[in-house]
Every structure is written in structure tokens, then in C-alpha cells.
Design a binder for these strands. Structure first.
Length: 641
RNA sequence: GCCGGCUUAGCUCAGUGGUAGAGCAACCGCCUUGUAAGCGGUAGGUCGCGAGUUCAAAUCCCGCAGCCGGCACCA
């Protein structure tokens, strides 16, 4: 005798247990038709699920927040069925829903190619039209293993053996096709609809391990209706337009070339931007009580051996050998160098915390497949610093860092910042006691800083646990930039010590921390975040002054000089071209302010200002324009006061 | 590093075995112009690199590199 509570709060008693489909039908025939699944006490289940107890139940239709996951998971199954029909001998493995769609990993000797996509999509549409009923069955373990083995599905068979004994083996059948799956699923393939598209192809390792065989992953996207699909595809195009590699070229910021794979050639405008960023953070660090240092690019192997980097990372380090057979390494990080500075002379507890910063130019020999524009490079610069402090100071230093970081991110328009806490990895240095201490300290400090975090188990650095700061850009993508890592290991290994109040030697704790992470990557993120349309204070070129007629050239020069005197990065365009031509060109180059001057302006002492993204102009007296733009170009550093 | 794709002029791209093409950009003229492309002309390429097949290779085969999309990695 279940009593069912619906989302509107109404309660319905039923004389006997009933399925989700029956429930939907009892509420209305329209709902029965639209129903895809039910959500019982917060869990999405098949429509065929029998409700035999009092429960809160929602009918999941296409517009329900949980519908997309369901549709996408079904799209994965429908695609797998299509692929197995089209390419006999292909083995199925896993196929989950993703944030924007789904994928399915297949094993097949012959590679799929993008030419297969249309064929697969067509067959998927046919399977939708066939309206195959989807049913759930519970099999015994042996039955399932036997079945998949005899069907030649070795991956599935292997997987079943590893499912914990107390879990049900559920099989979903649609038409002649079936898959091992926990579900839930739609009642039939027609409910999927046709708002899906097979998108791309890639390799993926069986169970995510590079030692395992490689599978072929086919990705697709799926939506509740055609409009959503179209909308998503448009969004992809928009994201492509703000690709930093494309904008970097169009805005003449930087280039890369194959003789220096994984490195950046900064052009004048790009380097101006870089320096703006560097100077900004330099001042923020200075204000926060950091000192800046510079340590050697190349240091002897022995130092890297002592620090522990050699053992763990030497394959990813650039190694050099000199004439006298010394083996050296180009620095992949700055911490060992900073410890060397710390070790010079005696340090008192009164000197702590010592916050040592460096714009450290590092090289890491990243795997070729990892490189990506200026976001993932082999030569990069960190806004790195190490805070040498006592254990007691971890909490206040962590809190101060978190505050600084959030304030910096806000200056770049990033309001939404999340924190991940990564604890001890399998391969690590230091004793379990040390790790207990480090993890407890960092957790305590994070909580004290008023931050919420999600746990990222086993993802810590080899020397200590870490916080990772993830920011969200204007188009909703997440980027991990900042980090703070507690390290009890390196001071020990490199023998850093300070003299305590008690006159005895103690080990300092090191906090490794960065806000941007890598300047190169952060610039890439900013380019995409702003789509190249930088706020005035960041723009590497702020104003272009264009003459409308040649006779106005002297006045244009005067205007440009006045802007430059006010500190604005200004260029002159005196070319013999129509003003519309110049406006178009500088707009495409994403110059934030275009000033056009002709005879009228010269006579009136005015300028016509056109802002990027606007089709209007504002005519202002020159002095007023200089003042307005000058104020707007002020760095947030000077606005703060 | 692994899987798949790609690489032709500065950029975007056409060209599937028979003398390398287009648009835009560049350069040179004309035009003196009021807010997103005025007009005309000129120049520009060892078709990523190397080796092979062929009378003949941008095109077919092999190797390598780089890039793109993922996977794995990310101190």
C-alpha cells in the first residue's frame, strides 16, 4: 500500500505496488508518454521499477535536470549497438555519459576513422526508429561470464569477475543487443530522440592504465532536442574563436615553431602583456611581504639527487653534460635553489616566515602528446615562492595566501574559485607520521581560512599534500592555476634549518605556492577568458590614433603624444586609407580604443573615441579623453588604496 | 609516450600520377577619405623533412618531425 509523494507535495495512496510507468499513467496520459524514468527518494531508476513502499517520486521527463545523463548514457548504448552491427568482431567495454555527451570505448583491430561517423550516426537513427524496448535483467555471475566469453567479449568477462560479490549483475537488453550495466536506462530506444552527433575519436587505455591495451574511444554529444544540440555546436564554434593559439596569431602576441616545440616566441605585444602581468604580481607579492630572488638555470645532478627530483623525474628533465663530464640538469623547479639561499648563514626563528619569490624559468621535458599551445609547454615561468616557516605558522600563512590569491583572481575577473585538497600519493617521500602531520596542518589551515574544499585522494605531490585552486572562466571552463603545498621533506633532504627560541636547530616547513601557476598558461587562459578583448589596464596596445585625412596627421600625432604622456600604450595610424578600413583592421586586432581625428577635430580640439565592441563614437575634448582613458587604464593595484 | 587525423603562399583553403591555384594579407600606383573591406597593378611556394616506386610524385609506399583531438602524464 505505497503512498507516493509527488514534487508538488501532493500525496497519492495506491492499493498495491506499481511501476513507475503505471504511476505516470495514473497521473496523466501526457505524462505517461513523456516519462523517461522515475526518481525515487532522490535516485533515478528505470520506469519499470516497482514502487512498493512509501516514497517521494518524481517522473523524469526530457526537461528534468537528470534527463540529459539518462539520454546520454542511452546514446552510448545505442552507439555501441550500432557499432557492433556495422563492425562485427568489435568488443564493447564501457560507455558513460559525460558533461556534454557520451563516449564508448571499443576494442577492434582495425582503426575507426572520422569517415565512419556518418555511417554510425545513420545506424543509430535506425535503432531509434526501431523503437527497441529496453529491459533490465539480473543474471548470475557465471551466467554473465559464460555469455560474454562465448560472445568473444573478453573485456566484459574480465570486468564481471571483479564486480564485488554482493553486487547484482544487471544486464540491459535492447533488441538483440545487450550490455552489462548498472543503469538506469530509458524504456525504449525511441525515447532517445535524434539530437545527437558522433564527434570525435581517440585512443583510451583499458581501465585508464597506460600498461593496458589501448581501446578506441568514440565520442558523441547528445541533447534533449535539436535546438539544444544546435546551441551546443554553436558554443563550440564560439570557443574555437577564442582559442588562444588563434588569437595569439591574430593579435600578434606570440608564435611557436617546430624547432622549439613546447616553447613560446613572444612578440612585442605579447611580451608587453607578459610584463604587465609580471609587474602586477611582483607588486602584489612585495606588498604581501615577499622577497624576490633569482637562482641558477642549470645545477649539478648531485643537488637534484639530494632533493629527490632526480629519482622521480629525471626522465622529464633536460640533462646537460659539460666538457669535464659533469652531469647537470636544467631546473624543472625552483625549490632546491631557494633552499640553497636559505642555507646561507644562520637563520633565526625571528626571520620566519621567510617568503622567497622567484619568476622561475623552468624547463620540463613534457611528453610530446601533452603539449598544447602556450597552455602546456616545456619552457615556462612560474610565479613561484617558498615560504619557510615554523609549523605554528602554517595556518596563518595559508590563510594569508588564500586571501591574496582570491584578491588577485578577482582583479582578472575570476570570481568563482574552488579548492581541491590532494592527499598522499602512493609514491612519496617522507614517513607516514610526517604525512599525517602535514595533511592535518593543511586541512586545519584551509578550514581556518574559511575555504571549503573537495578531496582529491592520492593526488598530492611526492613531498607533501597540496591545495589546488580552480577558477572558472566566462564560458564556464575550469582551470587549475594556483597551488599551495606543504613540505616537511625537502628541508630535511637539503638540510635547511633555523635556530629556534631555545637556541637549538630546527627544521623549517616549506610552503610551495603559486598563484598564476605558469605565466604562459595563465596568459593563455586570460586570452580565452576575455576572448582577446582585454580590459584597458591589461591590453598590450590600448589606443590607436587614426588620421581621417592626411592633413590631420600633425594633429593625430599631437593626440598620440598626449595619450602617451598619460602612460597609455598608443600607436598611430597615419596611412592613406579610408577610416572604415582602419577601423575594421584595428577592431579585428582587438584594440580596445580607436581614436579617429580629422579636420573637424583639429579645429575643435576634440577626438572621436570608438570602443571595441561598440558601433558608436563619443566626441570629447582631447584633455578630457586623456583623463578618462588614463583613469580607466589604471591598474587595480593603484585603484586599491 | 599511445591511438586517430592533419601538414600546399603570411592567413584560410582548392588541387588523387602529367608545367602548383583562389580569396584575404603584403608590395607599388591612383584616390584625401568621418567609423568594420575604395580602385588598379605586382610579387610571393624544394607542396613539413628524408628515402623509395614511376618515364613522370603535392598526389602512391616507407621512415621521421611538428601540429590538432583524446588517452596516459603533469614535481
Amino acid at each position: 500500500m505505497p503512498t507516493i509523494t509527488l514534487p508538488d507535495g501532493s500525496q497519492r495512496p495506491y492499493p498495491a505496488p506499481l511501476s513507475g510507468a503505471e504511476l505516470a499513467a495514473s497521473i496523466g496520459s501526457g505524462l505517461a508518454k513523456a516519462a523517461l524514468a522515475i526518481k525515487i527518494d532522490g535516485k533515478v531508476k528505470d520506469l519499470a521499477t516497482i514502487i512498493d513502499h512509501d516514497a517521494k517520486v518524481e517522473i523524469v521527463t526530457r526537461t528534468h535536470p537528470d534527463a540529459l545523463d539518462l539520454l546520454r548514457h542511452d546514446a552510448a548504448h545505442v552507439m555501441a549497438e550500432a557499432v557492433q552491427e556495422l563492425y562485427p568482431g568489435t568488443q564493447i567495454t564501457f560507455g558513460p555519459a559525460t558533461e556534454t555527451g557520451f563516449y564508448y570505448d571499443f576494442h577492434r583491430e582495425e582503426p575507426f576513422t572520422p569517415e565512419d561517423f556518418a555511417k554510425i550516426e545513420k545506424r543509430m537513427a535506425e535503432i531509434v526508429d526501431r523503437n527497441e524496448t529496453i529491459t533490465r535483467e539480473i543474471w548470475t555471475r557465471d551466467q554473465a561470464v559464460d555469455y560474454f566469453k562465448s560472445a568473444g567479449e573478453t573485456f566484459k568477462a574480465e570486468w564481471i569477475k571483479e564486480i564485488p560479490a554482493d553486487e547484482e549483475i544487471s544486464i540491459y537488453r535492447q533488441g538483440k543487443w545487450l550490455d552489462l550495466c548498472t543503469g538506469p536506462h530509458l524504456p525504449s530506444t525511441s525515447k532517445l530522440g535524434k539530437a545527437f552527433k558522433v564527434m570525435k575519436l581517440s585512443g583510451a587505455y583499458w581501465r585508464g592504465d597506460a600498461n593496458n591495451p589501448q581501446l578506441q574511444r568514440i565520442y558523441g554529444t547528445a541533447w534533449a532536442d535539436e535546438k539544444q544540440l544546435k546551441n551546443y555546436l554553436t558554443q563550440l564554434e564560439e570557443a574555437e574563436k577564442r582559442d588562444h593559439r588563434r588569437l595569439g596569431r591574430e593579435m600578434d602576441l606570440f608564435h611557436q615553431q617546430e624547432e622549439a616545440a613546447g616553447a613560446v616566441f613572444w612578440h612585442p605585444k605579447g611580451w608587453t602583456f607578459y610584463r604587465t602581468l609580471e609587474n602586477y604580481i611582483r607588486r602584489r607579492l612585495n606588498d604581501a611581504g615577499y622577497v624576490e630572488v633569482k637562482t641558477p638555470q642549470i645545477m649539478d645532478r648531485s643537488l637534484w639527487e639530494r632533493s629527490g627530483h632526480w629519482e622521480k623525474f629525471h626522465e622529464n628533465m633536460f640533462i646537460v653534460q659539460d666538457d669535464e663530464n659533469h652531469v647537470l640538469a636544467v631546473k624543472p623547479m625552483n625549490c632546491p635553489g631557494h633552499v640553497q639561499i636559505f642555507r646561507q648563514g644562520l637563520t633565526s626563528y625571528r626571520d620566519l616566515p621567510l617568503r622567497m619569490a622567484e619568476f622561475g624559468s623552468c624547463h620540463r621535458n613534457e611528453p610530446s602528446g601533452a603539449l598544447h599551445g602556450i597552455m602546456r609547454v616545456r619552457a615556462f615561468t612560474q610565479d613561484d615562492a617558498h615560504i619557510f616557516c615554523t609549523e605554528d605558522q602554517i595556518v596563518t600563512e595559508t590563510k594569508a595566501f588564500c586571501d591574496l590569491l582570491r584578491s588577485v583572481y578577482r582583479d582578472f575577473g575570476f570570481e568563482d574559485v574552488r579548492v581541491k585538497f590532494s592527499d598522499r600519493p602512493e609514491k612519496r617521500a617522507g614517513s607516514d607520521e610526517t604525512w599525517d602531520k602535514a595533511e592535518a596542518a593543511l586541512k586545519g589551515a584551509t578550514t581556518a581560512a574559511g575555504l571549503e574544499f573537495t578531496l582529491n585522494p592520492g593526488e598530492g605531490a611526492f613531498y607533501g599534500p597540496k591545495l589546488e585552486f580552480v577558477l572558472r572562466d566566462t564560458i564556464g571552463r575550469d582551470w587549475q592555476c594556483g597551488t599551495l603545498q606543504v613540505d616537511f621533506v625537502l628541508p630535511e633532504r637539503l638540510d635547511a634549518s633555523y635556530v629556534g627560541e631555545d637556541g637549538a636547530k630546527h627544521r623549517p616547513v616549506m610552503l610551495h605556492r603559486a598563484i598564476f601557476g605558469s605565466l604562459e598558461r595563465f596568459i593563455g587562459i586570460l586570452i580565452e577568458h576575455y576572448a582577446g578583448k582585454f580590459p584597458l589596464w591589461l591590453a598590450p596596445l590600448q589606443v590607436v590614433v587614426c588620421s581621417i585625412v592626411t592633413d590631420a596627421s600633425p594633429y593625430a600625432e599631437k593626440v598620440a603624444a598626449a595619450l602617451r604622456a598619460a602612460g597609455l600604450k598608443t600607436e598611430l595610424d597615419l596611412r592613406n586609407e579610408k577610416i572604415a578600413y582602419k577601423v575594421r583592421e584595428h577592431s579585428l586586432a582587438k584594440v580596445p580604443v580607436i581614436i579617429a581625428v580629422g579636420k573637424r577635430d583639429e579645429e575643435g580640439g576634440t577626438v572621436a573615441i570608438r570602443r571595441l565592441g561598440s558601433n558608436d563614437q563619443t566626441v570629447l575634448p582631447l584633455a578630457e579623453a586623456v583623463e578618462t582613458l588614463g583613469a580607466e587604464a589604471t591598474s587595480p593595484l593603484d585603484r586599491r588604496e
